[in-house]
Computed example of a mutant assay.
Amino acid sequence: MIEFINKLLSKIKIMRIAKILRINSQFFLDVVIFHLSKLFRAKVDDNLIIFGSANGKAFIGNPKYIYYYLKQNTNYKLIWFSKSKSLIRELKLNGINCVYNFSIEAVRLLRKARAVFVSHGWGDILPVRFPPRTVVIQTWHGGFIKIKGKHRYVNKYINSKWTTLTRTKIRYHQFFDYVISASSERKLINIESNVFKFPKKRIITTGYPRNDILFSRETHLLNKLKKKYNIPNSMRIILYAPTYRELKTKKEPFNDKDLIKLNKFC
């Protein structure tokens, strides 16, 4: 049904309708999905947990590692959502239960899920109306300092008059129950709260699950890494992993003082 509606709206020139209404075309589709989802029964299954990431395009991030942890340590029914049919085929070959986002089954499952984990937003799954007992957790995928309290898309479309006029509850403080933070630093928490208009009491400092492996004490992981990159066993490893951006820069990541400190540390 959802895929049919998506194709139908495309045929009637959704871009033109959205332009007339002066709203984003994707936001217009989200409004339609949100209200149609109310037609599906909302009976929560306490054993069902749903995951999605990267706008439904990839199997990555914090939800991925939460999925693996729960799969290895619990008996919950775990389902990964994706908008990529080729990715779904690949994941199923690896024993991962997947569902295509734009399907009746996807809406039905979301309306009965006990918990939902995402890394970017409702685009990872679908912007449905969740039952009161469903807990939706935004695990996020990076830092917030570079944003400096501003997010153009959120301000222009989500926190706009249209969500109020259409009674579409997809603002962050409405759609998500909790947001996790990688740090308890007050400045970071303030920025996170400001960016998403989210109350601080619902921001939980847990660290990012995807980073747990970096603190693993299992020696076989370290030995495997050193063997792969021909690193002597006696040598320490320092990971430098800045946020990837398409824009190129000639700025050096370290100055001479930094390098001297690193040499002393090693």
Rank of each mutant, 00 (worst) to 15 (best):
E218P: 01
I231G: 04
I189V: 08
F196S: 00
I238Y: 12
P199M: 00
R202D: 06
R186P: 13
K224N: 11
I170E: 05
A182N: 14
N194P: 00
Y157S: 03
K226H: 06
I170N: 00
D212Q: 14
N159G: 02
F198G: 09
N159W: 09
K226C: 05
L188G: 13
I203S: 08
I238F: 15
F196T: 09
R186F: 11
K228P: 01
L188S: 14
N155D: 14
R210E: 02
K200P: 13
W162C: 03
D177K: 01
T206N: 10
P209G: 08
K200G: 06
T166P: 03
Q174P: 03
T219L: 12
V195R: 07
K201M: 12
F198E: 09
T166M: 15
I204Q: 05
I213E: 03
F198V: 05
H173A: 13
R171Y: 04
H173K: 07
L222C: 08
M235P: 00
K201V: 08
N159V: 05
E218F: 05
V179N: 06
N211L: 09
I204R: 02
S181A: 15
R167A: 10
P209C: 11
T164M: 01
Y157A: 03
I237A: 07
N159D: 15
Q174C: 06
S193C: 13
V179C: 11
G207A: 04
N190P: 11
H173S: 08
Y208S: 03
K197P: 03
K156Q: 12
S184L: 08
S234H: 12
L165A: 07
K200M: 02
E185A: 09
I213N: 15
